[in-house]
Structures are given as structure tokens and as C-alpha cells.
């Protein structure tokens, strides 16, 4: 139990530093920024209490916000995503429910399941984030394009991380 917590804390800090110091400086085409940090919420074990996911989302968003001086923006988007996670998990639950001690990743749940799961949540997070940032209906399509493009790059990164964590030997 303790080792899981320590591991998660370490992952949290690595992701926050990676996002704050490296990814935030990547600007593809001028205004597309990949937000890999949300993989922290994506990768939490299935049996994490729902309320804990919300609080973790809040803390994660707040930390990212303090890097970019946009207090509240990432916080609200990440909390929203954490909230939706429970419902998305319920919607795409495989027959017989989730097995105990499994995690939402490609290795255990298969690529198509993971792709659906990650895409839905990344889309929810990015659209919430970009519309909160622009706060104007007049730039609807412009913001839409930004969000779609960023979703694409975040998904590429999320799947890349999955690729690196994939261990074929341990699979039966």
C-alpha cells in the first residue's frame, strides 16, 4: 500500500516537472501545447476511491497552474475530467466488471479499450480547458481547432508512454 502511494507521488512529480519545464515550452504551429500531465489521472488504479480521484485532480491542476500563472484554468479542467472518469469507466466497463488489482493501461485492457477510454477523457479535458481559456463564443471555431489539434498531440504522447510501459513478456 505504502509503496503504491510512494510510486504515485514520484510519478506525480515527474509528470508535473516534465509538463512545467519541457512540454509547456513546446509550441507546435504557434499555439498547440500537448498536456501529458493528465495521464496521471488516466493511470490511477480502478479501485481508487472516486472522491480521491477528484482531490488528486484538483491538486494536480493547481500545481500545473502555478507553473503557468493561470490559476484555476487547469484546476477546473482537471477536476472536471476526474469527475467524468468514473462515468466513462462505468460506460465502457467490460462484461463481468474490472478485475481486482488491474490498472487502466494497454497491457491489461487492450489497445482499443484504452484508446477509447483515453480519447474520451482527453477530449473532455481539452475542450473544457480551451473554452475556459478563451471564454468567448465569437472565437468558437478557432478554439475548436486548437482543442482538436492539442488532443491529437496529447494522445500521441499518451500512447507513446503506454508503449514504453508495455512489457510483452509478463503477458500470458
Amino acid at each position: 500500500m505504502i509503496s503504491i502511494i510512494v510510486k504515485q507521488v514520484v510519478i506525480f512529480f515527474i509528470l508535473v516537472l516534465f509538463q512545467g519545464l519541457i512540454l509547456n515550452n513546446i509550441e507546435l504551429g504557434g499555439y498547440i501545447v500537448p498536456f501529458l500531465y493528465i495521464i496521471f489521472i488516466l493511470a490511477l488504479p480502478f479501485e481508487t476511491p472516486k472522491w480521491l480521484v477528484l482531490f488528486l485532480g484538483f491538486i494536480l491542476g493547481l500545481t500545473i497552474d502555478s507553473f503557468t500563472n493561470t490559476l484555476g484554468m487547469h484546476t477546473s479542467a482537471t477536476v472536471f475530467m476526474a469527475f467524468c472518469r468514473a462515468y466513462v469507466l462505468k460506460l465502457i466497463e467490460p462484461r463481468g466488471g474490472y478485475e481486482f488489482n488491474t490498472k487502466p493501461n494497454v497491457q491489461m485492457m487492450g489497445l482499443s479499450w484504452y484508446f477509447l477510454y483515453a480519447t474520451v477523457l482527453v477530449v473532455l479535458h481539452h475542450f473544457f480547458l480551451f473554452y475556459i481559456e478563451s471564454f468567448k463564443i465569437s472565437q468558437f471555431f478557432y478554439t475548436f481547432g486548437r482543442a482538436i489539434a492539442s488532443v491529437f498531440f496529447t494522445m500521441v504522447l499518451v500512447l507513446t508512454v503506454q508503449l514504453f510501459n508495455y512489457k510483452p513478456s509478463t503477458k500470458e
Binding site: W51, L54, F55, G57, F58, G61, L62, D65, S66, F67, T68, N69, T70, L71, G72, M73, T75, S76, V79, F80, F83, I132
Partner: peptide, 28 residues
């Protein structure tokens, strides 16, 4: 309710921050 509570906090932060950058503690 926890969700709404946390979301409200973040919106308060957002609005306050946009007006005055009051929150000197948590910016860069």
C-alpha cells in the same frame, strides 16, 4: 457535491486571478 465544491473553488480562483492576479502565493 465534492465535484461541485472543487469546481467552484477553481472558478473562484480563475475569476479572482484574472482580475487582479491577487494570488501572489501560487504564481511563478
Amino acid at each position: 457535491f465534492i465535484f461541485l465544491f472543487l469546481l467552484t473553488i477553481s472558478f473562484v480562483l480563475l475569476v479572482k486571478n484574472n482580475n487582479y492576479q491577487n494570488s501572489k502565493v501560487l504564481n511563478s
